[in-house]
Structures are given as C-alpha cells and as structure tokens.
C-alpha cells in the first residue's frame, strides 16, 4: 500500500505542475475524464508514467477502471512493476 501512495504522490506532483492550474484541487480520487482530461492529455500522463517508472503499458491495461483517477492509475503502475496480471 505504501508503494501505491508513493506512486500516487509522484503522479499528483506531475498533474499539479503540468496539467492543472495553480490552486486547483486535485486528489488521488479526482476523476480524470470528468476534470477535462481528453485522449491527448491522457497520452501525456501515460508517457510520463512509462518514462518515470520504466514501464511499458500493454493495450489491455488501457481501461476505464485503470485510468479513472490517480489512485487507480498508481495501483496499475505498482501491479505492472511487480509484473502481475490485471485484476479480473
């Protein structure tokens, strides 16, 4: 769980500096699509994830559940770091 929190913190730092205007609240539970994340914004976030954590995200991980918010994304990252299959 602490791994997920660490990844979350890194994602939130990126989102706060790169994607969200200053002063706007973003938490681990912020729904990304509902906050205006379009496909291209999502691509830049996923590229950041791949570069920062040395990952390659397979197509079958690009699901609404995984990409819903920073928390779900962090959980996916940790799972991929441990090479675990997607949760059924």
């Amino acid at each position: 769980m602490s791994e997920i929190l660490a990844v979350e913190a890194r994602l939130l730092e990126f989102l706060r500096t790169e994607r969200f205007s200053a002063g706007r609240d973003i938490t681990a539970e912020t729904d990304l699509v509902a906050s205006g994340f379009d496909s291209l914004a999502m691509v830049s976030l996923l590229m950041f994830v791949e570069k920062s954590f040395g990952l390659w995200i397979p197509q079958n991980e690009l699901t609404g559940e995984n990409l819903q918010n920073p928390h779900s994304l962090a959980a996916m990252v940790v799972r991929l770091l441990h090479n675990q299959p997607p949760v059924a």
Partner: peptide
C-alpha cells in the same frame, strides 16, 4: 475515448 487512447499512445 479508450480506443483512441490505444491508438495515440504507440504514436506518442
């Protein structure tokens, strides 16, 4: 949007 994302990520 997810189908489009699966297309855009490899290009990026």
């Amino acid at each position: 949007p997810l189908a489009n994302l699966r297309l855009l990520l490899p290009l990026a």
